[in-house]
Design a protein around this nucleic acid. Sequence first.
DNA 1: AGCACA
Length: 225
Amino acid sequence: MADAYWRYADPRQQAPMAPQQPAPLKRPRPDYGGAPETLGYYPREDERTVHLAVKDTESINASYDRYLQNGISSYSTAELVRPVGGGLNGRPVEDPHLPGIGGMDNRIIGYSGGRTEAPLPPDASNTLFVEGLPANCTRREVSHIFRPFIGFQEVRLVNKDSRHHGGDPLVLCFVDFVTANQAATAMDALQGYQFDEHDRDSAYLRLQFARFPGPRPSGGPRNRR
DNA sequence: AGCACA
């Protein structure tokens, strides 16, 4: 499951890695050319190509935890989500060679939306409308599902009464992302996601783009600049 | 099937 998050969080950008070109821009990697021996020690290079061979589950989980810890502290601020992209790229925070996260991550953000090729439907928005949530699910629970996706901002639960009287009250939710691309990535990843893996007949998620775009980043008019 | 918050 965790690997699914990883896969989608950095959508297939890892696959088409630079064919032969080292780095047209500034991307000096002294640690690569310098001392390859030491690299074997770090699992980080493997993490960047996990989609090929996911063996080292433990190290992935470790990095995943680190990622979560760093991501949580910046949940509602779009800008602070950016470093998360770096983390998901398999670049652990511990990397001492990273001088400033600024430069590199700006480029990472450039494609953090992923699916530069997948055309978004015209009705795409940065907010997802999610149904199929079990009636007793919590906001925290839903957040756990969406938080790993890059661009995740916030989730809002809405309680609805079932139309059939006697049915359990339904829970809808709206999930905001920074961009529609990121929302689409999460939507594809979680479409049909089963809340209760034991009971295949019960809750499975159905996601659509919300009819109306997400709210203001919740700041209102005060977030100048 | 169902779409809320500012």
